[in-house]
Computed example of a mutant assay.
Amino acid sequence: MDSNSLISIISLIAVFVSVLLSFFLLTVPSERKLGNVLLAGFILLNAIDLSAWFIYGFTIQHPDLEIFRRSASWLINPVFYLYALSICFSDFRLKAKHLLNALPFIVYNLVMLPKVYLADFTAKTIFIEHYGDWPASKIMLLAGHLQFAGYFIGVFLVLRKYRKIYLENYADSRTITYKWLFQLTVVITIVHAIVMLKDILKFIVSTDVFNGAQIIVGINAVFILCWFVLKALYYPDLFRGINSKIQPADDLVLEDHSVREPDKGVLSLQDQENIQRIRDYMVQKEPYLEPALTIQDLADQINMPVKDLSILINNHLDQHFFDFVNAYRIEKAMKILRDPARAKLTILEILYEIGFNSKSSFNTSFKKHTDLTPTEYRKKYIH
């Protein structure tokens, strides 16, 4: 069996898995229906692109279908970008303006009208067989790579905003939206980098080795995507969207003319009193024991505008709300771990008691705070 036959078989399996996964996403009951539809669309579009390895023998006999199949690749990056928005921001909805993302797809098909769609069968077939010799094909290739770069820079910017707002407004350590979507985006970027390298080198040397590398990495990406989807479906609470209208604390400061950047480190008497009130409340009422505590919840409890609370914690105390709350949780854990009367409690029982719901997040936060693991800390104080 030659390498091309092997790649065809592997790609056929990958396409089958992708179609099966997409069908599952489109039919499974879920509160995240829009995100599931967009992710299914992204997977199907990639499957259509990947099918070129084994379907070309058929589509060359149907040139219109082959060109339309190629044009679908112009929708892959926009759909993934929209998916990133849908999973990061709980209030995201598709609007008419999002149709602008389909403009390259429309333009490509319009360009192909006289070349393929309106041409006779012989002209269509000759054009496709010599597509690489068409002067505009190289421009199309470059435009495709530029489109990918633009959209994936956009995805990374969305993730940066999501992470910043999440840390400033939420204290639930369960969320893995940022982590998983970031990893998925990195994997897709690596796959595309290999494709881009192959496209560059095919004008210079034989690229059989890169064809193999491309399909292998592409298959890995499919199965990583499967893991991501299954994780999202079986543990929906782990993927938490935020409201896109929430602003980062730095933007709130710029809007608040009473807080000037040069005076950022100088606290007024009122600010000092408010900070002390917040700290007293955290110690006395222990709101951090609620795993899903948000900055809005805390603001409501202490009867303070959420904007003012965000500026005090994220700007004046120079801490994310996430870190601010976790510091109290770790202090509580340290007290429990030092208490001989509670020595029989397991680490898991302790982390749930203090508001964590992830052992890895608790261990990471505890070691960051004490330079010791919870077990090491307990052994240090209880013999």
Rank of each mutant, 00 (worst) to 15 (best):
L252W: 01
F105R: 04
V306P: 02
L351M: 14
N211W: 14
L351E: 14
L21K: 00
A96V: 13
V325G: 03
Q214T: 15
P236K: 01
K264A: 12
I188R: 06
Y166V: 09
A249F: 01
L159C: 06
N314W: 05
L44E: 01
F203G: 07
F121T: 10
A40Y: 02
F23C: 08
V19W: 03
D251C: 06
L298Q: 00
W74M: 14
S310C: 13
I153L: 09
E286A: 10
A213K: 05
L20H: 08
V229D: 02
S365R: 14
Q284F: 13
F16A: 15
G212R: 01
F203Q: 12
K164C: 08
T189W: 10
F16T: 14
D300E: 14
L238T: 03
V79W: 05
I336K: 02
I246E: 05
I200W: 15
L289G: 06
R69N: 07
H130K: 14
F148R: 05
A52T: 10
S361W: 04
P29S: 01
R342P: 05
T294N: 01
Q183A: 10
F321W: 09
N211Y: 12
F239L: 03
V283N: 12
Q147M: 12
A343E: 12
I224M: 13
R160Q: 11
D237S: 07
E290N: 09
Y56M: 03
P340W: 04
L345I: 07
A299L: 06
K231E: 12
P262T: 03
V19T: 09
A47T: 05
D300R: 13
N326R: 11
A40W: 02
F322G: 01
P236I: 00
R70N: 13
V195P: 06
Y178F: 15
F148C: 10
Q247N: 01
D91H: 09
G212N: 13
G212V: 11
D339E: 08
L293S: 03
E331I: 07
S30I: 04
N46R: 01
L181D: 10
A143V: 12
A193Y: 12
S5D: 11
N315M: 12
A102L: 12
F23E: 07
N314K: 02
T207G: 05
I9G: 05
R70C: 07
E331H: 06
A123N: 11
I43H: 00
D339G: 09
Y288G: 04
S206V: 14
R163S: 12
A47G: 07
Q247F: 04
V116P: 06
D271Q: 15
I194V: 15
K164P: 00
V217K: 06
L94H: 08
A343D: 12
K231P: 00
S358I: 07
V266H: 13
P374V: 08
I350A: 03
P287C: 04
H383I: 06
C226Q: 04
I215H: 08
W227H: 10
M196F: 13
R240V: 11
V158T: 10
F203D: 08
L113I: 14
R378S: 15
F58Q: 03
P63Y: 00
M196T: 13
I354A: 03
A249V: 04
T346E: 14
L159Q: 05
A96P: 08
I382E: 05
I190R: 07
T122S: 11
V217E: 08
E66S: 04
K245G: 01
D371K: 14
I190N: 02
V19Y: 05
G241P: 04
Q214L: 11
R279W: 07
N211R: 09
